[in-house]
Nucleic acid binder design. Structure first.
Lengths: 260, 260
DNA sequence: TTGTTGCAGATTGTTGACAATCTACAAACC
DNA sequence: GGTTTGTAGATTGTCAACAATCTGCAACAA
């Protein structure tokens, strides 16, 4: 867990001082809402999604506790929440491992995500304001610029932002939470493929623009259909990328993992 | 928490003896997979979904631990998992409460569920075998008999079974898990309305038969549309039921709850 | 009578200790 | 040389104790 040696979780007192700009009631609120458990959970989730901890990696509770300067209890509690959130997997008496999402599972996730994306498109077409549509258009322009410049590091965050914003504009918090959960889970799969190269860079961002225009036109059926197809295309591209690298074992995945 | 005084969680040793029918490897398997934490979680989840513990009820960790004959640690861990599963809500320093799903949240859940139901219908039409379609037909017949007999206690479990089976036949485990989570959450809302009477009994089960026939005909679009409409009708019926009782406070909900 | 303060008890959050289990390695045996 | 057994150390699961926080009630002041 050498990757855990470089980041230190702020203590609750640190949070109190840095949260002060908006007044004492915010600091009180923060302390009211955050236990060590929730802070540990947030930090571990951040690291997992950032790729600082990789799928298959073992999370040693004593090490985590020592590094974050808490006792093992809150770490264990955080593990249970992360497990229920689908980010880690517990093997009794052996430890907790960052969850590995298999190809079959990723298939399912993509399929479900496409279904959610369809609903998102339909609802966003009905509910997004004109200002919000303009916001989407601006994001598409940024993505086009990043794609033209072949700027991978800029493109992917923009893509994530675009889709998350869309999900927000559907105006259904439960849908947004479900969608985000799927995206998090896909990170556990995509991290493996991204480590293998940048084969999934899109040829064009025309689809994004078409989606936004369907929403602007309040055409719910078209918006939903376009988003569904868009999500299914993402899935196909990942399959193709995996087929190309299946013939050589990935050298980056030799860390300690649980048995398959 | 008087409702918790009547049921005792079997100890791990008890499970070992009752799990013996299929041989020692099942007992070993069970011990390998179950910690006190997971057993406590399962038991609490069972009680919540069964309505033995009601939305808004406070779960006292010392009481739970005493009744289930474990220490507070595993109970706390189970609470964290249940919280992440959306079944309880934690207020720091005040305790854990069974989650109450508001009308607004229920609206969202129903809307999302309708979207999932549509996807389920489409996938089931593509993937269900002829034998599985026959199984659905049999369930519909049973539901029709219960409806004719006005047998509420028989009808609702059949209805739940029918829809869960449909979700299974979609052939996507991630979709099934997401669907079940929504159903569990709706229990937190429906328990309140069911306590107010049986106003939501369906007038007819013709919709279920139509859905199954669309699946039998492999008409994915129709099956999806019928299931979507079916789910949206469920939502409308619950709204109507709530409007009828809004004028009188429910006498059953005077137990200790958290402040709103 | 109303509002404020103090305090006891209950409860939650965290910690450290102990027991149980697993893993890796060395020694013994075939 | 290959297999089995035993053991030490690491790690996980649970428990009990302590500290912190909250709640309800009584006493006091205005």
């Amino acid at each position: 867990m050498s990757s855990m040696a470089t980041v230190i979780l702020p203590s609750p007192h640190d949070n109190m001082t840095t949260a002060a700009p908006t007044g004492p009631s915010s600091a009180i609120d923060l302390l009211r809402r955050h236990s060590l458990t929730s802070l540990v959970q947030q930090e571990l989730e951040r690291r997992i999604l950032a790729g600082d901890i990789l799928p298959g990696d073992k999370l040693n509770e004593a090490d985590v506790a020592a590094e974050l300067n808490v006792s093992r209890g809150p770490v264990r509690e955080a593990f249970r929440a992360l497990e229920q959130a689908g980010l880690v997997r517990t093997e009794k008496n052996r430890g907790v491992f960052v969850r590995q999402v298999s190809l079959e599972e990723a298939d399912e996730i993509y399929e479900l995500r496409a279904g959610l994306d369809e609903l998102i498109g339909r609802l966003a077409a009905e509910r997004a304001s004109d200002g919000q549509v303009a916001e989407l258009r601006a994001l598409v322009v940024q993505m086009q610029e990043a794609a033209s410049a072949k700027d991978v590091d800029a493109y992917y965050p923009l893509n994530i932002r675009f889709h998350d914003r869309l999900a927000q504009l559907a105006g259904n918090g439960t849908l947004l939470a479900a969608y985000r959960r799927l995206i998090n889970e896909l990170h556990l799969y995509r991290r493996r493929t991204l480590a293998l190269g940048h084969d999934a860079f899109p040829k064009s961002t025309r689809q994004h623009a078409d989606i936004v225009e369907a929403i602007a036109a309040r055409d719910a059926t078209l918006a939903g259909e376009l988003l569904y197809q868009h999500a299914m295309k993402s899935r196909s591209r990942l399959h193709e990328a995996l087929e190309q690298v299946d013939l050589q074992p990935p050298p980056a995945l030799v860390r300690e993992t649980s048995k398959p």
